[in-house]
Design a protein around this nucleic acid. Sequence first.
DNA 1: GTAAACTATAGAGTAAACTCTAAGGCAAGC
DNA 2: GCTTGCCTTAGAGTTTACTCTATAGTTTAC
Lengths: 126, 126
Amino acid sequence: MKIQELADRMGLSVHTIRYYEKEGLLDERHVERDQNNYRHYSDEAIERLTLVKRFQSVGCSLTELKQILLGLDTNTTTTQQGIEWVLSKIKEIERKKEEYDQVLATLNRMLEYKVALQNGPGKEHR
Amino acid sequence: MKIQELADRMGLSVHTIRYYEKEGLLDERHVERDQNNYRHYSDEAIERLTLVKRFQSVGCSLTELKQILLGLDTNTTTTQQGIEWVLSKIKEIERKKEEYDQVLATLNRMLEYKVALQNGPGKEHR
DNA sequence: GTAAACTATAGAGTAAACTCTAAGGCAAGC
DNA sequence: GCTTGCCTTAGAGTTTACTCTATAGTTTAC
């Protein structure tokens, strides 16, 4: 598929996709060039970008993502070191999930307060 | 307490704290000025910045945070509208938590793969 | 066969959230 | 009393992740 189609399917702009390629998040398994020099994307590009979006949405920078993808692609970092990296990342994500729970708690308090205000104005305090 | 102490306690830089104040995330309940014009922070500043960090860590922009804090501070946005905003925010956070679970799943797959490689090299495939 | 729509590149511009610098005033220790 | 270190402001600089522009070639539709 060509870049515009991929962009539409992924909900990204063509600029962003080219930018990701420049940043090394896509490689020959995902993009090739037609005779006319147009980029041609494989289905693997979809998978890759889905992964990119997913990790990005939990706060990974593109630099960090490159590390992660490298870890998925090659066995180079396989060893105690690589395992420890993944473990620390897992801990980090779990901490973040706890943060989310605390934010949810705050939002729920806000909600209850607002609902109470709406239902019984004049009794706001206590 | 003075700005450096607050910064140390919160794990922020003094620059960042002044920046937050300029952006309207802190007000007279959190900062006052001594005779020498030094900023003097109340304990409420700690609570406030904790909240700021918490919401920020789940992807809220400072602009959005200002809205949230306004909603906590005043009753101005209390009405159906405000309630709906909180509800939509809660949905958003819940969606994000699901993303986190997917990322955790990916990391766990990476981990298993790496552990398997380390324990039985030569049997990487299948 | 030509206009509209898509592709390419290089590079400039933007927004958010810091981060740092300069130039100066205040304060605490020796 | 003076050096060292923290405080002030205004404003410049940085980083990240886009986002857009200019210029030009290609493809598709009528």
